[in-house]
Design a binder for these strands. Structure first.
Lengths: 211, 211, 211, 211
DNA sequence: GATGAATGAGTGTTCATTCAT
DNA sequence: CATGAATGAACACTCATTCAT
């Protein structure tokens, strides 16, 4: 409303930075525990050990902390998902990517559930998520295109669509398995199936030298 | 939810049945339009053209109508998903099942979004959904097992897991395409990809007589 | 609104009379079970086995049934409270009156609790009750006056006040004992104390021939 | 009543304490004026001159304020009811106790009516009241026992029962007089009768040196 | 910057009573 | 008379955000 420092701005002092960090960490924990709609600002501040009002010193709204928590999570997921393109066979690259995604999912499973939740009603957040997804799908699509040029993937495969569909397969399978079923035993079988189906769906030779 | 054992349920007269139907239809439309949390009971009754209080003559809560609307939808999805097992090749059966699911999804796309939404915070509803999914996955798994016996699917495929994973692939791809992206053009390419990947992932011969 | 038969009027047919009776009996039972504010008209009709709307054929309101139920109860209490004035000593008459009141209270204990309840917020009902009380107190006061003329009660006793105060003593003691404490054992001791204190408070000779 | 363990209680600042006090005072006045069920939270806050929501900063429910108002009242009644045991004759002690109780009742008459009201439907409150009553009755019973040892009260009197019964007498007489009859003239006659009947009922010598 | 009190619009649900059939 | 559907005002409680100290 004025030219004053907007709330939610970055803190300038050392102490302020610590408080902000505490709030972010507390927010994540409370969101994981109760979900977004059931989380009260008071829960977050109590958990962080700061005064109620201080929340609004660092974040303009409950939504805003969530966005930031989610952003950090996406960052984490993406950073670890990078698989060196040079190296073993395409099939192995697919397997490694799947495993890396699984590791990330496991690390962040609870928060992934909440992200799914918020994505169902918050348009701004949907947009953020679409972007992250598009980047990931883009990378996979480019790999598929390359493999097609090398004759490893049949030419009738639409790289963009295949990338989308396989990403949906892995993502949603992990969601149902880790989030909705609370991590049941036998995860190895699930991962093996994901790997196998991904590789065969693309028609990749599963071993070096295989047709 | 009251402990009085109020009827709050099935109408005894023709007129009551009509009112109840009107409320159900209105509820579905309003839910689709605004989502579950943003729907007010007043919206539903206004839309149905009945008095506020009449809602509670037929449903004990907002949640209860939702459950019933969703139940009807599951019913619709399941009824149309039945693909005659006798007939053409396995690959064709897979394609037909995918198409049937797509038709259902398209018919109910808006409501599917809301179902996804409610599933993220309502445990009772999650359970209902798990059951429907399990039934579907079971059917697919049995088909895969049969194909394995007939030598059409490699023996290293875990039928249950494969069924799960492919269902997740189709379901979530359609969700992202129809719900989150609001039915963009080029759906045929998506469906073709789903078919192709399903068939190849299972190693099914895509044409009669093909290996 | 017109010159039609007002609701709540006496029924003319035999069948109507039976329905009305059923509603009255059901009302009493439900009131006893749940108290006045917690009783729904639906409870009464369900309990009576008649249709919801029929209630208003016989009674203009929930309050109206209550008034009638209470009126019958007062009638019962009064009818049995009549102690023949001729007969044994005044002390015995006091004892008999106390016992008769106790019997009535016991018979109607649950309803007495609800009457107490309604009396705290319904002015019309308070008036009804005041009248019943006044009649009872009047009778006792006249007996005390007589006993004063016969030299059995000291002349410094105010008959009206003493009657009031002793009635309050008996009434409230029974209320606390039977209603609030749910009829604990040892009632005989309570009754003996009530008798003894009543008799001594009035200075009555407790035995024939005693001073 | 929430399961969040919200503070909802004691204010931490001077200003908060003042607001809480204002709400308590306003609550008492509104309860007295309209009774418990007819009191709206909005009445209380309007009367206190604070925002609606502020009520719930200090009290978790309408019931909770009532409990606290009543508790303070019981406190007041008890504090003033203490009659020095040393001093004049037992008869005088009885009279003084009666008068002290009357003073307290007069001071709190309106609220006593509401307390009676709430006691008819709120179990938690009934319990609170039972405790206060038991304490009072206990004190009286001990006095009667002492007087029996000193030969001032006949040995056939049951101290506990007599204390109960006389307390009921005084309490309910005052209730009917001050609350239900709105303090009619001639209260002195009532008090004299209460004193006289109490003393005679116990057989206490009404004057020093009298038998 | 930190604190915690203040604000008040918003909502699901209840239920006595009325009315159409 | 009987039936049960229709009505809608009423109310306690929540909670994100703002503000005074």
């Amino acid at each position: 409303m004025g030219s004053d420092g907007e709330p939610g701005g970055q803190p300038l002092t050392e102490r302020g930075a610590r408080t902000r960090e505490r709030l972010l960490a507390a927010a994540r924990e409370v969101f994981e525990e109760r979900g977004f709609p059931e989380t009260r600002v008071a829960h977050i501040t109590r958990h962080a050990g700061v005064a109620y009002g201080s929340f609004y010193t660092y974040f303009p709204s409950k939504e805003a902390v969530f966005l930031e928590v989610a952003d950090r999570l996406f960052e984490d997921m993406t950073r670890h998902a990078l698989v060196p393109s040079a190296g073993p066979s395409p099939a192995d690259r697919v397997r490694r990517a799947n495993r890396a995604y699984y590791e990330g999912y496991l690390r962040n499973a609870k928060m992934m559930a909440i992200i799914e939740q918020v994505a169902t009603f918050n348009e701004e957040f949907q947009e953020l998520r679409r972007k992250h997804r598009a980047a990931q799908v883009g990378r996979s699509a480019r790999a598929i295109t390359r493999w097609q040029r090398e004759g490893l993937v049949p030419p009738d495969v639409d790289p963009e669509m295949a990338a989308r569909v396989l990403a949906a397969m892995v993502d949603h399978s992990l969601y149902l398995w880790l989030v909705q079923s609370h991590d049941p035993p036998g995860t190895e079988r699930l991962l093996d199936t994901l790997d196998m189906l991904s590789v065969r769906a693309l028609g990749l030779p599963s071993q070096l030298g295989e047709p």
